[in-house]
């Protein structure tokens, strides 16, 4: 199956992005609804995101695939306004993200875990302090954020989060002395400490060897099973998208190419998604200057 534009790729019975559930489908509330999302970094640059629309329901896993530069990471960051989108509507956990002021945006972010490709742990702090940082939004006093000063209740909770990712024995180690796989598991423990209702993961296995990558993806699957949280993750590994996604959203040049159930995706036909952009799809500027 070849990749088709979003409007023609919606299969019979499947929902168009941003629409309500079809009759007969199990009712799950929408945790994240995005419509008309657009982002451009500079006035002379091309759009990084163009009219992106999708829905993530409670307990659902949405795999976002696409070539480098297709806008996957920008899309994730725009949803939390870590990068300010130009236009669009984003409703997350029942709140309008675009109109949220700083304080309510912080409160909203507190419910959303974000796992980064490069882990983004604080290098000189211990593993336990990094996990404790996950509680920053709900435990406002600075003494709660560090291993040396946090109360026993929070340290026990952080240790329990580390136990879930199998790293209790490394609680006291400096985080810059961990392997890539261990660092990513600590980042997941930090996310667990947030008690998230929704998790974003930006290529969480990309910088890891296949075994460590597999372990990390398995942790996400377990998180979904145990907590029922929605997971939105980007990846290059189509096998991960197939095995860990309920739905697949394909991006090409900032546009949604398709958004469909994982069983309806022809993964063998996805090569076009990663191939060169045909001239017909490129702007005159791109055709002229590459």
């Amino acid at each position: 199956m070849s990749v088709q534009p979003a409007e023609t790729a919606v299969v019979p019975g499947a929902r168009a992005p941003g629409t309500a559930a079809s009759p007969g489908a199990p009712h799950r509330s929408e945790q994240l609804t995005v419509r008309g999302l657009r982002k451009r970094y500079g006035a002379k640059e091309a759009d990084v995101l163009q009219d992106v629309a999708f829905v993530l329901r409670e307990g659902e896993s949405l795999a976002v695939i696409g070539a480098n530069g297709s806008g996957k990471s920008t899309m994730l960051r725009c949803c939390l306004r870590l990068i300010e989108p130009d236009t669009g509507e984003i409703e997350m956990l029942g709140q309008d993200v675009m109109s949220a002021r700083e304080r309510s945006l912080r409160r909203l972010r507190a419910h959303v875990g974000f796992v980064f490709q490069r882990h983004n742990l604080v290098p000189r702090l211990s593993v336990l302090s990094n996990v404790l940082h996950g509680a920053q939004a709900r435990a406002a006093s600075p003494r709660n954020w560090f291993q040396a000063t946090a109360p026993g209740r929070l340290r026990a909770e952080a240790l329990a989060c580390l136990e879930r990712v199998g790293l209790t024995e490394l609680a006291g180690r400096r985080s810059d002395r961990l392997s890539g796989g261990q660092s990513q598991r600590v980042a997941i423990a930090r996310t667990l400490m947030q008690r998230p209702r929704l998790v974003f993961a930006d290529e969480p296995a990309a910088s890891l060897d296949p075994t460590a990558g597999e372990e990390v993806m398995e942790l996400f699957a377990q998180l979904m099973r145990d907590e029922g949280v929605g997971v939105l993750f980007t990846c290059h590994d189509l096998d991960h998208a197939r095995r860990y996604g309920d739905r697949v959203l394909a991006l090409r040049q900032g546009r949604v190419m398709f958004d469909r159930a994982v069983g309806e995706v022809d993964f063998d036909g996805l090569r076009q998604l990663y191939g060169p952009v045909p001239a017909a799809e490129r702007s005159p500027r791109e055709v002229l200057y590459g």
């Binding site: 939390l80 870590l82 912080r106 409160r107 909203l108 972010r109 507190a110 419910h111 959303v112 875990g113 974000f114 980064f116 490069r118 882990h119 983004n120 742990l121 604080v122 290098p123 000189r124 702090l125 940082h133 996950g134 920053q136 939004a137 406002a140 600075p142 954020w145 980042a187 930090r190 996310t191 947030q194 974003f200």
Partner: peptide
């Protein structure tokens, strides 16, 4: 490194939390 700062921003930390938790240790 802006990475840890972005991570703390993403989890809803306040400005003081980002400075104490990510900027000063770095």
């Amino acid at each position: 490194d802006p990475g840890p700062q972005e991570a703390l921003t993403a989890l809803g930390a306040r400005r003081s939390g980002i400075v104490l938790g990510a900027v000063l240790p770095a």
